[in-house]
């Protein structure tokens, strides 16, 4: 298969352009999406091809344009709403979670809301507490919303195309520090289905489940551990709703140990949910308590040295793995 290397930002614009050529009902709306091509340059070039009728700049009013998108989705369009920062989700919550997520259910299946909310997560960009949050667990909590977390340019393109074709509201989060990261993608069109995890690295001693950019953290931890003779399996769920439980459980049944790494705050988040499902469904295969590694439960600091301390690192993940192999962090009453 012919391959080429592109950035994640380019993968996003390619996915959207391909879907817009295929389906005339797809359009993009958001702040600075047209001429500016988005501050992270994820939408560069789209307005030149599709014009301002389909790449629509909105006023700075997330509740307003999110509401417009829900209405457009219910009446036959397939809007892609760009939220410049994932932190602005709070402004769009009613439209997304009370309206779009429940439209299909409350209309007895007569209406659909096929919209994509395209946004980002991730700290360490020195953007301070209101522009650095990873809020994907918030929306994953709401039945009726699907949540995709691509971990590379390849994943971003395939998952975004699937999101645009989905008949339900999908929120897709990219790590804002990964927009310039490159990966190999096929020349041909491809889609990545939802709910199918990717076993990034095979291993036999410990399972590391990691989302979004934390897949890189997990891979680096796994490489360190490998040099010490500990074989770690790395799993990228790709979508947390739907969640490919089977792949995760099969891995944990094999290894007997699991660490969950996610950049959302640790408490009440994605790490807790996945750890809990493992406890419920693979308890008798566990040789150590399941470990969570999330972001610290503090507002993300602006100070760079402090900010760096709040996010999961390969060093912390590897250290947990070593302790679990030794059986040290065992809770004994």
């Amino acid at each position: 298969m012919a391959m080429r290397e592109i950035t994640l930002a380019k993968a996003v614009s390619e996915a959207i352009a391909e879907e817009m050529r295929r389906d005339p009902t797809v359009f993009v709306m958001g702040e600075d999406v047209a001429e500016a091509g988005h501050p992270f340059k994820t939408l560069a070039g789209l307005v030149q091809e599709f014009g301002v009728e389909r790449i629509v700049d909105t006023p700075i009013s997330e509740p307003g344009f999110m509401g417009i998108a829900v209405g457009a989705a219910m009446t036959g369009s397939r809007p892609i709403v760009d939220l410049m920062f994932g932190d602005f989700l709070f402004l769009a919550m009613d439209q997304l979670c009370n309206q779009a997520a429940k439209t299909h259910y409350m209309s007895g299946g007569k209406l659909k809301a096929p919209l994509v909310l395209h946004t980002n997560l991730g700290a360490t960009r020195r953007s301070a507490a209101q522009h650095s949050q990873s809020l994907h667990a918030l929306v994953a909590h709401i039945p009726g919303v699907k949540v995709a977390l691509p971990s590379s340019a390849y994943e971003a393109k395939g998952l975004l195309k699937t999101a645009i074709r989905d008949d339900n509201p999908v929120v897709i989060f990219h790590d804002k520090l990964m927009y310039q990261d490159k990966s190999q993608i096929p020349e041909e069109e491809y889609l990545i289905p939802f709910g199918v995890a990717n076993v990034v690295r095979q291993g036999s001693d410990i399972t590391i489940v990691a989302t979004s950019s934390m897949v890189q953290v997990a891979r680096q931890a796994a490489e360190t551990l490998n040099r010490e003779g500990i074989s770690a399996e790395v799993i990228d769920p790709r979508t947390i709703v739907p969640l490919d439980e089977e792949t995760i459980l099969a891995s944990v049944r094999k290894t007997g140990r699991a660490i969950i790494v996610d950049e959302g705050h640790q408490s009440f988040g994605v790490t807790a949910e996945i750890a809990s499902r493992i406890n419920e469904k693979a308890f008798y295969y566990l040789d150590a308590p399941v470990r969570r590694v999330g972001a610290m439960d503090v507002p993300v600091p602006f100070s760079p040295p402090l900010e760096d301390l709040t996010v999961p690192t390969p060093k912390v993940v590897a250290e947990f793995a070593r302790l679990m192999m030794k059986g040290e962090p065992f809770h004994v009453a």
């Binding site: 760096d308 301390l309 690192t313 912390v316 809770h331």
Partner: peptide, 23 residues
Amino acid sequence: PPAERTQTSTPVRTPAVAAAPAP
């Protein structure tokens, strides 16, 4: 790049073994 940030950051978040009662 993210790879660099994860390598260069100093974790103070050492696993809280002490918090768990030692066997």
